[in-house]
Design a protein around this nucleic acid. Structure first.
Lengths: 202, 202
DNA sequence: GTCTATACCAAGATAGAC
DNA sequence: GTCTATCTTGGTATAGAC
């Protein structure tokens, strides 16, 4: 039996250079499907095609991986909303928000699911960071509602509650929408905007 | 050193006769706080004040415990809504539903949290049972909306979506309401009813 | 009905070779 | 950068004594 030396039967990993992103993708999907606590590092490694030990070249521990995924999601959300050109009136701004929120969240159901479901699995320190980002987003929405009340186009007894109510309602889309389903994305947007608009209007 | 015999230093358990309910209460609280997968049988036992092995006198396994808690919650929800005297008109029925849903859910935040968050930790068989119960509840709400559309008091492009949107909005109350907070339960009910009413009205 | 003890397995994380 | 091997801890569930 001869040998090609160390080049043969190479089991030392692919060194592909994209292991980092692949780990994040696999973790995102698995955490969303089964929950953070139910997913093992070995399972993530298997999905990526490496051994469990190799994961620790990319994350110091499992908690940091979860936190990083959640933080990325929240900062992307804020950046994307910031990038939407602001309309003048509150009504039009609210309409833009409704459409933006639905589309952004439907495009990344796994990240959204994790961002809401795994808050309790964050350390206190990490939780505080995510909470601040979430609050920033909510404050942006409340600003629109307040503007609308001042302009007299909205009638809202409590803008903070209305903010949370609208966001909760829109988040519900992710639980039932399927792209092959009965309604197109535009129709979904229209139906929800009608409800939101009526709910907040004067 | 003398001894009182086997009556002394009794470590053989309390035999209190209420261990069963205590296990369910502890499991409900812990599952809600930390998630089903993150809670161990040892932890539940510790809360109850027994050893882990003793739990298996009350449940065949951890999965059955989760399922039993979720099923109890859903059947209680359906029974409680059935017990509400039905009003004549759709508008009044919807108002009764809004108040009922908010109050029922605020009274059992842990059970509600579990019912929504732990669906993915049920076996396929158990999941199907819970889903059917949830569907029954939703169909009751959709019935009201359909009646309102027929009577001309509601204008709703899609009663199924509106049902899910209303429920999602109302469920949001559980994420922020605190009894010591700024608003009384009656005020919360009023604020949400105003939004729901406007959202579905013609 | 509960205890103690344990079988059995899988988890997160690390060490050192390559 | 990844592998293999392993340390340590803690999980579910069961057996048999009391």
């Amino acid at each position: 039996m001869f040998s090609y030396g160390r080049r043969m039967a190479r089991t030392q990993g692919s060194h592909s250079g994209i292991t980092g992103p692949k780990i994040r993708e696999a973790a995102l999907r698995l955490f969303a499907q089964q929950g953070y606590a139910a997913v093992s590092m070995r399972q993530i490694a298997k999905e990526v095609g490496v051994q469990a030990g190799a994961l620790y070249n990319y994350t110091p521990d499992k908690q940091s991986l979860l936190f990083s995924l959640m933080k990325s999601h929240m900062t992307e959300l804020l950046a994307a909303w910031d990038a939407v050109p602001p309309a003048a009136g509150a009504m039009e701004r609210m309409r833009a928000f409704t459409g933006f929120h639905i589309r952004f969240h439907l495009e990344r159901p796994d990240a959204v699911f994790i961002a809401y479901m795994e808050l309790r699995n964050l350390t206190d320190e990490n939780f505080a960071v995510i909470e601040t980002l979430r609050r920033d987003y909510e404050n942006g929405v409340e600003g629109i509602l307040k503007q609308g009340v001042e302009q007299g186009v909205f009638r809202i007894p409590d803008t903070k509650i209305a903010t949370l109510a609208v966001i909760a309602m829109l988040n519900g889309v992710n639980t039932w929408y399927r792209s092959e389903g009965r309604l197109t994305l535009n129709e979904v947007e229209r139906v929800y905007w009608e409800m939101v608009q009526k709910a907040v209007s004067a």
